[in-house]
Amino acid sequence: MIEKAGLPAAHLTAMTAMAKLAGANRILSSGLIPHPVGDPTRSHDEEVAWRKGQVQKALNAVATPLDEAMIFPDW
């Protein structure tokens, strides 16, 4: 609904197929279901650095012009 209103919205989730079905446009695979932007297996500093990377990818997604919904490849 946020994209429908004209605001670009990046969607970080472990459940990318569900996000696509729900009509999200800028979808990024991230984390696990219970912590889409967390990774408790890492040390705190490593986890923050990883999370920064995930958020950076999300920002890249909102800055990417799209014609249709897309699950961004994870690289």
Binding site: I2, L7, P8, A9, A10, L12, A19, P36, A58, V62
Partner: peptide, 8 residues
């Protein structure tokens, strides 16, 4: 201007 959504 833009939004980051997180979901489970």
């Amino acid at each position: 201007q833009a939004v980051i959504v997180t979901s489970t």
